[in-house]
């Protein structure tokens, strides 16, 4: 009970520290909208062939940017902040206090998920308002489940990659080098009808970003007749998440590497 109260209190302090750095907070929120607008301008809001259906460019980009948001707030931010705080000794100090490790992690991850959900709502509202994108109705539960599984997978992978990063100077390079290529080959920046080679799609199908983007495309697809759940993609995401969690537990550390 006490530990749970402490965990919730961590979220409050994470939020306060985030709010106190307004420049960083502003760009965190502006970032996905910038991408949504730029990509819709470059590739046009005209029709895109998505599977058997034809949808507008923005209808494709709203879930695509939502997937980008999950990767950024969970994977990139969690990995970077872990490495920076580990190097600065923040984590070691926390380990010296009687705060259970899980309560600290809970604060970190819960706050990442809150930011991710806020960004998802902003992106969806922006798409609805300015591009007339229709939002999920019957498939809303599927979208929520996909976001939850995606957040779990990418937070776990963020902690796992943090364990492999030797120091804070190396963090941006390693995190970007692992995330950016996958974002390019997983139908996030570039729409699927551009003519991506099949082998590239096969390669990207191994990795979790494509599973997330495809599951979200289904959830946001206005022509989706069913509930919009993608069990195969969700299963693959969950498997990546469990693998990431095990690696993070085995190799993760709270102390600066020497």
């Amino acid at each position: 009970m006490r530990a749970l109260r402490l965990a919730l209190r961590q979220v409050k302090y994470e939020e306060r520290a985030f709010r106190r750095n307004p420049a960083a907070a502003f760009f965190t929120f502006a970032f996905p909208l910038i991408f949504l607008v730029i990509l819709t301008v470059i590739f046009g809001n005209s029709d895109i062939e998505a599977g058997e259906r034809v949808i507008s460019g923005a209808t494709f980009y709203v879930p695509a940017i939502t997937a980008l948001t999950v990767v950024n707030t969970c994977y990139t931010s969690v990995a970077m902040s872990w490495v920076y705080d580990r190097d600065a000794g923040v984590l070691k100090r926390i380990r010296g206090a009687p705060l259970p490790a899980w309560a600290f992690l809970f604060g970190r991850i819960a706050y990442a998920i809150i930011v991710m959900l806020a960004l998802t709502v902003i992106v969806a509202a922006f798409g609805r308002l300015f591009y007339g994108v229709s939002l999920p109705g019957a498939t809303a539960p599927a979208v929520v489940v996909t976001l939850a599984v995606g957040a779990f997978a990418f937070c776990a992978l963020g902690l796992a990659v943090a364990a492999a990063i030797p120091n804070a100077d190396a963090a941006p390079a390693i995190v970007n080098a692992t995330a950016l290529p996958l974002l390019f080959i997983s139908d996030i920046f570039i729409p699927p009808d551009v003519g991506t080679p099949v082998w590239v799609e096969r390669v990207s199908a191994i990795f979790p970003v494509r599973h997330l983007s495809e599951a979200l495309q289904t959830g946001f697809n206005p022509f989706e007749a069913g509930a919009g759940f993608e069990p195969v993609h969700l299963g693959a995401l969950a498997a990546w998440g469990v693998a990431g969690l095990l690696l993070a537990l085995r190799f993760g550390s709270w102390e600066p590497r020497r």
């Binding site: 302090y13 306060r16 520290a17 106190r20 750095n21 705080d85 600065a88 000794g89 923040v90 070691k92 100090r93 010296g96 600066p256």
Partner: peptide, 13 residues
């Protein structure tokens, strides 16, 4: 209580 040599604190609090 532990006061280590190199430890960081949240700069914005």
């Amino acid at each position: 209580g532990i006061v280590l040599q190199h430890t960081g604190l949240e700069p914005y609090l």
